[in-house]
Computed example of a mutant assay.
Amino acid sequence: MTVNPTGTVAKDGTITLSGTYRCKAAGPAPVFISTSVRGEEVRQELGGPAARCDGARHTWVHHANPRSGPRMRPGPAEVDATLLRLGTRGSLPAPTILATDRHTVDLRPVAV
């Protein structure tokens, strides 16, 4: 699981992050890439795309526009990306972290 060192932030607040991952299939439970970004005064949980777990290296790109709270601004931001399997134990949800990466990312303004 990796996070690229640069991302973008648009004037409307849309954040784009990307990176790579690799995972192997281990049952039918879905796997997702969960992302969050933290700036000086802002922390936003962004969710993320579904992952394909076939043992190969894949790239991921996630575009998110949080609709509430203050917006991220261009500049350095701490990004967490987690490869997360959503399974169950008995009748309870049981997410399992498969891999994680945390880096400071340079959020650059989107050129219009």
Results as ranks from 00 to 15, higher is better:
62 H>K: 04
70 P>G: 08
32 F>W: 07
103 H>V: 14
5 P>Q: 12
20 T>V: 08
4 N>F: 15
82 T>L: 11
65 N>D: 09
11 K>M: 14
8 T>Q: 03
38 R>G: 09
2 T>L: 11
108 R>P: 01
67 R>M: 13
78 E>Y: 12
72 M>C: 01
84 L>W: 05
3 V>D: 01
76 P>K: 04
69 G>D: 06
106 D>A: 08
37 V>F: 03
2 T>N: 15
99 A>T: 05
59 T>L: 05
5 P>H: 09
58 H>M: 08
64 A>N: 10
101 D>P: 07
7 G>Q: 03
8 T>P: 02
36 S>H: 09
8 T>E: 04
109 P>D: 07
11 K>F: 11
11 K>L: 14
71 R>G: 12
96 T>G: 02
77 A>Q: 03
38 R>P: 03
13 G>R: 13
39 G>T: 08
29 A>M: 00
20 T>R: 11
62 H>D: 04
49 P>Q: 06
46 L>M: 11
21 Y>G: 01
80 D>P: 06
17 L>Q: 01
16 T>P: 10
4 N>L: 15
44 Q>N: 02
21 Y>A: 03
110 V>M: 05
79 V>F: 10
112 V>I: 04
39 G>W: 09
29 A>L: 02
112 V>K: 06
104 T>P: 05
102 R>D: 14
70 P>R: 13
97 I>P: 07
73 R>N: 11
106 D>M: 05
24 K>C: 07
1 M>F: 09
93 P>I: 06
68 S>R: 14
85 R>N: 04
32 F>I: 06
60 W>I: 08
5 P>D: 12
27 G>A: 10
108 R>G: 04
72 M>H: 01
53 C>V: 10
30 P>T: 02
76 P>S: 09
53 C>I: 11
21 Y>V: 00
20 T>F: 06
75 G>W: 00
12 D>A: 09
86 L>T: 03
35 T>K: 14
43 R>Y: 06
109 P>R: 06
34 S>D: 12
61 V>F: 08
62 H>M: 04
99 A>S: 12
106 D>F: 00
62 H>V: 07
47 G>S: 04
6 T>Q: 15
97 I>Y: 03
10 A>W: 04
20 T>H: 09
111 A>R: 07
45 E>A: 11
74 P>E: 00
8 T>S: 03
79 V>P: 07
21 Y>N: 04
17 L>A: 01
95 P>L: 02
89 R>P: 06
43 R>V: 06
105 V>L: 13
1 M>H: 14
59 T>P: 04
6 T>Y: 13
99 A>Q: 05
22 R>P: 07
70 P>L: 13
53 C>R: 05
97 I>H: 12
14 T>D: 13
86 L>E: 05
101 D>V: 04
33 I>C: 01
54 D>V: 07
96 T>V: 10
69 G>V: 07
47 G>H: 09
63 H>E: 15
18 S>Q: 05
51 A>P: 04
87 G>Y: 08
